[in-house]
Design a protein around this nucleic acid. Sequence first.
RNA 1: AGUCCCGUAGUGUAGCGGCAAUCAUACCGGGCUUUGACCCCGGCGACUGGAGUUCGAGUCUCCACGGGACUACCA
Length: 559
Amino acid sequence: MGEGTDFIRAIINEDMKTNKYNGRVHTRFPPEPNGYLHIGHAKSILLNYRIAVEYNGKFNWRFDDTNPTTEDVEYVKAQIEDAKWLGVDWEDRLLYASDYFDQFYEYAVQLVEKGKAYVDDLSVDEIREYRGTITEPGKESPFRNRTIEENLDLFDRMKNGEFSDGSKVLRAKIDMASPNLLMRDPLIYRILHKKHHNTGDKWCIYPMYDWAHGLEDSIEGITHSICTMEFEIHRQLYDWFLEQLDDETGNPIFKPQQIEFARSNFTYTVLGKRNIIRLVKEGYVNGWDDPRMPTIVGILRRGITADAIRKFYKEIGVSKREAIIDQSIFDNCVREDLDERCSRVMSVLRPLKVVITNYPKDEFEEITILNHPRNKEMGTRKIKFSKILYIEQEDFMEDPPEDYFRLTLGKEVRLKYAYIIKCEKVLRDDETGEITEIHCSYDSETKGDSSVVERKIEGTIHWISAIDAIKAEVRLSDRLFIKENPMELEEGEDFTDYLNPHSLEIVNAYVEPFLQDADIGSRYQFERLGYFCIDIVDSSKDNLVFNRIITLRDSWVKR
RNA sequence: AGUCCCGUAGUGUAGCGGCAAUCAUACCGGGCUUUGACCCCGGCGACUGGAGUUCGAGUCUCCACGGGACUACCA
């Protein structure tokens, strides 16, 4: 898709034309600091940020921290890190809803003074009961018609901590028969004697989402309040609250417009805080930053770049249809990004020893090769060819299928960047029958590239010299679930029933020696295998650890 | 069951009354290749259904069907 004008930009274009906000565009991302951000959040973050940039506007990062029972500074820190990694910039506008608590309170008083809010003594259960249902209207609370004076007094005392949690709430007086349940006298404040990460013990009443959110947007001068579809039904209330209030000059307060878009889901994974928490807490993965996780920390640890994420979201666009995006679209973006930026290296994941019978015993030769086949600017490096080598176990077969063009007994194959070899003998373990090594001869006339070597050989395989290869732990992670949509469940099933038992395999591989000193987090293409990244958590000079970011596309194994 | 939102190839999208219905991905076939990668070429494949408005409907209207949201002192 790419550059097309999606429905949100169409709305903004129209607003620009009509000068609705004096040519101003100001967006925001308002996370609640109660969990780790995931790939789904990235869509919203990037969308809001990109729009601000495109329209020469501003973007705010704002923590919607109105519920101290679930929020924590640990999450505010983590979310800030994630956002920075994604590359969004809020300049000096790292904001908190809790900074506006005084203003929220003033506005609530104003609403009470206008006779549009009241203190209700009903219990949680009673409120629910009085609310009615989807098909039946609710009924009014017996406390609904308290006098303004009484409400003012009660609300003040709520704030002062005179009442216990749950004993009273402040509600808007709207319409208990509204077809929209949110309009049936929604709660504005609840009593919560709870320390807040930002305001400490100053407050014992905290604003509800619907009350806070529109006000936050209004206070910050947000023009387009872009959120996901589940808030669509809230828009009526969002608008109502903003329309009731006046500023100190008696004019209506600034009114942003809320626009909803559909969130994205992905095949073979689960999104949603609840599910993600379970994966961590129940030990199905090794923490929030496990490379198999859809969390931002997981993705970045896996080695995927923020560029790839941006490319992906640009690719799939924005709409109002709830979508389950095929993993392959994401994978393609990741590969495109990595193909361009990664140096190639030789690595053997499952080594099979090869002895070059006609190569001198204690000698070796250096071969200079390009780090990237299409980009000379990425430089060259040297690798060593010698008598003892390792190749990939799956690159040798004694009894190969018709179209196998790797190494097999009596046949030739090209060792990439080096010589053509011919397999002459297979040695195996007497007891297990397993192949232990193979003997090959090399053709000394075949070194180099096609410009100097005429012989055409079908197959080219990667290899590494035993004399200088170093060991590394390589973690081969795969999709976490074996079911396209793990949340689509039969009665009695749980999404964890569909966890992929082979989502993580660890092998001891050989890699080129220069990787010993490579930077943590750096990425490489292991030729013919895939893209790999030096693990930012567990890797060290003495214990190299790679994560497989993604395999290369493989049009052979899929046969 | 009521209100609201959504419904274009397998998947994700473009389309704003007149197109042979766009692009990407997937898939199939071919070319190139010292990565069965990358790249290039070709192909497959869709307007949920029915009425209506109109000279003309994927585009507008209505109905049906399908999917989703809403019945937290969460956000």
